[in-house]
Design a protein around this nucleic acid. Sequence first.
DNA 1: TCGATTCAGTCAATCACGTTGACGACTCAT
DNA 2: ATGAGTCGTCAACGTGATTGACTGAATCGA
Lengths: 156, 156
Amino acid sequence: MNAEHAHNVPLARIFLSAAGMLVDGLHRGLTARGWDDVRHSWGFVMGRLSAGPTSVNELATFLGVSKQAASKTIEHMEAHGLVHVAPHPDDGRRKMVDMTSEGERFLRDVQEIYSEIEASWAEQMGPGDLELIRSSLVTFLTDLNGGTLPPPAPLK
Amino acid sequence: MNAEHAHNVPLARIFLSAAGMLVDGLHRGLTARGWDDVRHSWGFVMGRLSAGPTSVNELATFLGVSKQAASKTIEHMEAHGLVHVAPHPDDGRRKMVDMTSEGERFLRDVQEIYSEIEASWAEQMGPGDLELIRSSLVTFLTDLNGGTLPPPAPLK
DNA sequence: TCGATTCAGTCAATCACGTTGACGACTCAT
DNA sequence: ATGAGTCGTCAACGTGATTGACTGAATCGA
């Protein structure tokens, strides 16, 4: 007698549930591979860094948080050996963040785990459906946000 | 030169982006209607209460948090006049939480705002697509979780 | 019926993680 | 050169979660 019918569950709840399952699965996989004490934003940071080095500020807007918060995250990740911070060669104000080789290993693990989870989802949902969801949401959200995918939920 | 292509954006990021947009929209709508100082979990709590009164514990598992955390949320909402707490008639341990009339008004506003947002999303994505996303995700997640929709992202 | 156990909820301490505001270092246009 | 704007940090703080210890109520077995 579960009174929750598909048509009236708010999308926000659905998306948060789905994200929760995925992030949980990721962290289970990471601990299984020996990655301990991993914060949930690290995966997103590494994803961004895979496109090349960035400044603290860019990372902050990418994550949708203040630059102070981003700075702390970087500091934490650096202490764990995943990223490397160096002064920008031409602009003395900036610090450029990029991956260490340990970070690359971490990113590879994250991507593998996500691939496994998403593959099993695709299998159970019908493979076309999941890709439809992904592509239509990405294009819609990117469009809605003016060219870039909006940052992951601030959830104030 | 945005290197983010639809097919390789991890689902977790997409869902969190989407949820963020929705929750942001909700809170903008709420402040526009005079609801101030609203926490993001309140909407979910009211959604649950619309199915009838619940105990603190049930609410905790529904939200995916500890009962202490749920207790504080209830306390906060009660202070804002949205819910009413009464001892369970037959079981002296329990406290039953239900909506006040102010809470019903709040819930109505939440639902209206979500409806507006979702309607505009549906319009832009193609109305069938959004409903497909909703229903396939709900059934899939519910199934995956063993009969109930998993709680909204713990995001530890 | 009584004792042990389990269950609901709270109290207290703590932690994770974000915020704002003030600030110094640097860049850049004028 | 100077004044404005940008990048990142420091410090103080708030919110919302956690864990662990606890109280009181219910339940269950002998």
